[in-house]
Every structure is written in structure tokens, then in C-alpha cells.
Design a protein around this nucleic acid. Structure first.
Length: 556
RNA sequence: GGUCUGUUGGUGAAGCGGUUAACACACCACCCUCUCAAGGUGGCAUUCACGGGUUCAAACCCCGUACAGACUACCA
């Protein structure tokens, strides 16, 4: 009896629909992929940048797809205009690219995409969503809802007051039972409406999610008549878009943040209603931080600079170091694997859904820095030079020019204590390098700020520098260099043997380290540097003389 | 209020009924040493949020409680 009415209603609600679900099934056939191939996606809003937590998810989704010869694609979820930003897609693409994540399919710039399952931007999939929604209306499983936000708010308040479950369900779902004729009339009158699911669920029945990361989770069935299509822009809500897009794009695995666990019953119900094959789900732990008040909370892109992926790019933390860190929080057995495969490539590590940590992870920059240090420790001087050139070109032009000008010299500087058994590990990022090497470049040594500490007396400093330059300076060999330094110590009343000095400190003015300290500071302005002999050799006799003189003249 | 998730040292965590409760980062001490970094050695949870129970035996199983978090939007 109702069929004609239902058809009239459905046509009225979705005048733009010209195709059927069948048509789309044909347009987007099942992917022809090898056995076990996993199809994943990253589906951000076009906000222009990627949040650390999102990157972690994208990183894992990408990794799994690559490992199984599957597909990783980028879908833009722009159904909420408030979240959209100009050039938002390109920004996201860049952030991903900075971490070597290049989608196989999806958007490639603000307007274009690659792949056969598009459009990959939701605002262009309007008719598709409407086709699916219309099907539901025709089957009596969705209906127009004319409730105003104020009315909804009212029901909510009543529910709160009576301590009832909050939401649009059962007798609270006013439009659910509306007469079709009335609905038709109201639509014809131009009234705005949303499209709601007529949920067949029973809150007293249970469903189970078999989460890849967490095991079985039990829920009551969904009985909320959730909104599928919004009223003003006719765009779908996340829940509906998830169903339509992930089905049509043939996504096999949904890897998303744990904030989505609670809406699983809705999603599961939607897939059931359409009889679509259900994807597998892995809900990932959130990335947290401890804020100023000592409270653990979700990393926020507004408050925390380190939440933005761009931050690491600017800091010059090598992307591979960040990836190593991400992997350690993604899979808890990764660190052990790395220990056993010190030269192993991250691509050789096998991702394991069971090793996803369920609890929210505190973002630990100290750990990241440590990983980065070790990473720098393995790099060759030439590599550092090349990468630093790229980094400075973007972030420190002045330093960039100096590096270009003194290429060979700079590489030698980076090579101090590098290609040896136990290379030094002090660089944590490209941005930190300048602080470690600036004094090696005359351009940065025009007005040094000397940090003398042990020996501070001007006359003594002058005496040491002059004596050293005149009689003991010898760079022909490291042993000879140090022997000479010690000889000078003896002649000036400093202990050349530290153990001797410790036994009887009062017998001396100080010890070798105090004396080399003076030389070190006069040459570099700093008390902590790499091997002094190496530095002096690189600086050369002329520069040493100049710096000694400068020091003597400038010291207060 | 409802639904769900989580809780092992400062941090990330291993553990899945019998362990001295791995490992890594951080921290501390000592050693090495021209300074620093690195490296070496050792220390750092008598105890696994708490309270009951099951058991010869529990961080691991069961039941409560507490705390933290997520969702409960015409946001994703």
C-alpha cells in the first residue's frame, strides 16, 4: 500500500538521484588484489596540516598496506565546512610526504586525484550518498526528520532530568512515526529536514566487535535514529560516509583512533542493513601529553607545537628518526626488533596488529631525541652536509651560504670523531648542529663570548696562551700534541697527570684539563667541544694565532 | 546519567597462573678521559590503581571500587 507513497517521498527527498546502488557496485568493483592484501586509508579533514596522532595512524595504515601489497589511499572528509582551510589538502599532502607517505590513490592536490574509486573528496560524492540514502527510504529504513535543533535540545534536557538515556530513539524519535503524507506535504512546503536512520536495533541485545588491537568488545545494539544526511547542505555525517565510502572504495581495514570505538554499533548496523561485507577494525590508542598542571590529556594541535607534524620538519629532526619513534609507539615489539637488527630497515619489520598498545601513549620527546641522536651517530659526514644544506636552504639562509662556501671544510668539521669505533652523538636535529659547530666558521667567530670557568685570571690566561704558542704548539701528531701540552703544564706548575693531581691537589696550580680548557675556550669560546686536537688541526696555525690574539685583546 | 576503553617504575613497555617483574629512554653514582658527547659498570617497581575472592601458588582468573579517557552533535 505504501510503496507508491514511499517512492514519492524518496523522489521528493532526493531529486538528484539518477543511479542505483547496483550501478555503483559495477562502477567500483572489488579490487583485484593478491591474497591477504590490505586496503587502508587516511581520511582527514582538509585542515592544512597533520596532527601527530593522525600521522601515527596514517603511518601504520600505510605500513600495513605496503607490507601486504595492498592499497593506501587518501580520502578528504570535507563534510564540515568549518574544518576546511584554503589549500588544506596540499598542506596535508606535504606533511605526509615529509614522512615518505605517498598515497597510492586519492587526492594529489586541491582538485585532482588518481585512482579508480573516486571521487576521493566527499563534497563531490553527494549523489552517491543520496543514492544509498534513498534506497534506505524506499525500504522504510530511513525517514525525513523535521525536528529543529531547539526541539532536540529540549528532549535532551528532559532526558537528562529524568536520568534517561540521551538520544533520538524510541518514543523520543518523534518523526520516526510520522505519516508519509504529512512528510510529503512538509517537504513540498519547503521545510528543511535531515535524513535519519530508522534503526532496527534493540538496546537489550548485544553485538560484538572483534577489534584487531583489543580483542572482543561487547556493546548493546544501536537503537539511535542517527542522522545520515544533514539538512542544510545535504552532506552525509561521518557514520554514513564511512559506510558508503569504505564500502565502495573497498577498504578492508579501518585503522582509526579509539575515540571511534563508541560509534562502532552504528557502523556495524549500517553495514548489516546493506548486507555489505564488514571491514576489520583496529582502534589505535590516543597520543597524550602531560600539560602544565600535570594532567594527562590528548595532545592538542592548538596548544602543543609538538602536536603538529610540521614542527619536526622545522626542527630538523630527520624524518627517518621520527618514523623510528612512531614505530616504537605503534608496535611495542619494534624496539626489541631494532636491537636485534641494528642495521635493519624499518620496512623489513613486520607490523603486528596484536602489538598495538591499547592505552594512550604519552608523547615522549626525550625518547624521540635519543632516537634522533643515534640516527645522526650513524650518518656519514657527507650525508649530514647534504641534508643540512637542504634544511638550511629552507630555514637558515645565512648558515646555508656559509656551508656552500666552505663545503669541504664543513664536511671535515662534521667528520670530527665520526667515522670511528664509537662515534660521538651530539647532534639531535639539523637545527641543533649550528650550536655545535659555529665556532669553526670565522663568520660566526667575530665577537665570541668566552666562557672561561676554571682559570679566569686574565694574566694567567695570557701567559698560558703566549707560552703555548711560542714554545709548545705542535700539530704534527695527536700524541706529540698532547705530550707538548703536558710538558707545558709541568713547566707552568700544573699537574700533567690528573691522578697525581687528585692525590695532592695543593701541590699544583691546577691540572692539564684546566690548561687545555683555556686553550679550548680561547679557540672556540666554549668549554665543551669535540676533540681539541682535531679542532686545532682543522683551524690551522694561522687561524689559531689569530684567535689567540683576539682572545688576549678581548679578555676582560 | 548511559555506553565503552584504559590503569605494571619519571616515560614507553614485556609479561597471559609458579620469573630475581625483561628491555629501552630518562635520572643518579662510579670508571674511562684534555672538556663534552659517546662507551663501560652499577643503582633506580619487595611490587604490578585499590578491596575482596578462586588457587598449594595471581601482575596474570572472577567480583566490586577508584581514577583517567572517549563517545553520548545536523564535528569528524
Amino acid at each position: 500500500m505504501n510503496n507508491d507513497k514511499l517512492t514519492e517521498l524518496a523522489d521528493l527527498m532526493f531529486p538528484d538521484v539518477t543511479k542505483t546502488i547496483e550501478d555503483y557496485e559495477k562502477m567500483y568493483p572489488e579490487r583485484n588484489l593478491p591474497e591477504g592484501a590490505i586496503v587502508t586509508r587516511f581520511a582527514p579533514s582538509p585542515t592544512g596540516f597533520v596532527h601527530m596522532g593522525s600521522l601515527l595512524g596514517a603511518f601504520q595504515a600505510y605500513k600495513v598496506a605496503k607490507e601486504t601489497n595492498g592499497v593506501f589511499y587518501l580520502r578528504i572528509e570535507d563534510t564540515d565546512q568549518k574544518r576546511s582551510v584554503e589549500n588544506g589538502i596540499v598542506g596535508i599532502l606535504n606533511d605526509l610526504k615529509n614522512f615518505d607517505i605517498v598515497p597510492d590513490e586519492g587526492m594529489i592536490d586541491e582538485e585532482h586525484s588518481i585512482g579508480n574509486y573516486g571521487p576521493y573528496i566527499q563534497s563531490e560524492r553527494m549523489e552517491i550518498y543520496h543514492t544509498f540514502a534513498k534506497d534506505l527510504v524506499l525500504r522504510g529504513l530511513a525517514y525525513p526528520c523535521f525536528c529543529k535543533p531547539e526541539e532536540l535540545e529540549e528532549t535532551r534536557e528532559i532526558q537528562e532530568l529524568n536520568k534517561e538515556r540521551i538520544g533520538y530513539y524510541g518514543s523520543f524519535a518523534k518523526c520516526r512515526t510520522m505519516d508519509i503524507d504529512e512528510a510529503i506535504t512538509r517537504i513540498k512546503n519547503g521545510e528543511e529536514f535531515t535524513v535519519r536512520l530508522k534503526s532496527p536495533g534493540d538496546f537489550n541485545k548485544k553485538i560484538v566487535l572483534n577489534d584487531l588491537a583489543r580483542g572482543e568488545i561487547e556493546f548493546p545494539e544501536n537503537d539511535l535514529d542517527v542522522i545520515l544526511i544533514k539538512s542544510t547542505d545535504k552532506l552525509p555525517t561521518y557514520h554514513f560516509a564511512h559506510l558508503v565510502d569504505d564500502h565502495l572504495m573497498r577498504t578492508t581495514h579501518i585503522m582509526r583512533g579509539e575515540e571511534w570505538i563508541a560509534s562502532f554499533p552504528i557502523h556495524d548496523q549500517l553495514f548489516s542493513i546493506f548486507g555489505f561485507e564488514k571491514p576489520k577494525y583496529a582502534h589505535l590508542g590516543l597520543v597524550m601529553k602531560i600539560d602544565e598542571n600535570g594532567v594527562r590529556r590528548k595532545l592538542s594541535k592548538r596548544k602543543d607545537p609538538e602536536a603538529s607534524v610540521e614542527y619536526y620538519h622545522k626542527e630538523g629532526i630527520p624524518k627517518d628518526a621520527v618514523k623510528l619513534y612512531l614505530m616504537t609507539i605503534a608496535n611495542s615489539n619494534f624496539e626489541e626488533w631494532l636491537d636485534n637488527n641494528p642495521d635493519g630497515d624499518i620496512n623489513d619489520f613486520k607490523y603486528d596488529f596484536k602489538k598495538i598498545s591499547a592505552s594512550g601513549t604519552l608523547f615522549d620527546t626525550a625518547k624521540l631525541f635519543n632516537i634522533s641522536k643515534n640516527y645522526f651517530g650513524k650518518m656519514k659526514a657527507e650525508e649530514i652536509y647534504d641534508n643540512l644544506l637542504v634544511w638550511t636552504d629552507e630555514f637558515d639562509k645565512e648558515f646555508h651560504d656559509i656551508l656552500v662556501k666552505h663545503k669541504d671544510y664543513a664536511i671535515k668539521v662534521f667528520n670530527i670523531e665520526r667515522e670511528v669505533e664509537k662515534p660521538r652523538k651530539d647532534y639531535v636535529s639539523y637545527s641543533s648542529i649550528k650550536n655545535f659547530v659555529f665556532y669553526m666558521f670565522p663568520e660566526y667567530f667575530e665577537n665570541p663570548n668566552y666562557e672561561f670557568n676554571k682559570i679566569t685570571d686574565k694574566e694567567e690566561i695570557v701567559n698560558i696562551l703566549n707560552t703555548y704558542y711560542d714554545k709548545y704548539l705542535d700539530l704534527s701528531d695527536k700524541d706529540i700534541w698532547f705530550t707538548k701540552v703536558k710538558e707545558m703544564c709541568d713547566s707552568l706548575g700544573y699537574a700533567s697527570n690528573i691522578k697525581e693531581y687528585k692525590k695532592n691537589p695543593d701541590a699544583y696550580k691546577g691540572n692539564v684539563s684546566d690548561v687545555t680548557g683555556v686553550i679550548r675556550v680561547s679557540l672556540t669560546s666554549k668549554t665543551n667541544t669535540p676533540d681539541l686536537y682535531e679542532i686545532m688541526k682543522l683551524l690551522g696555525l694561522d687561524e689559531i694565532k689569530e684567535r689567540f690574539t683576539k682572545c688576549i685583546n678581548n679578555i676582560k
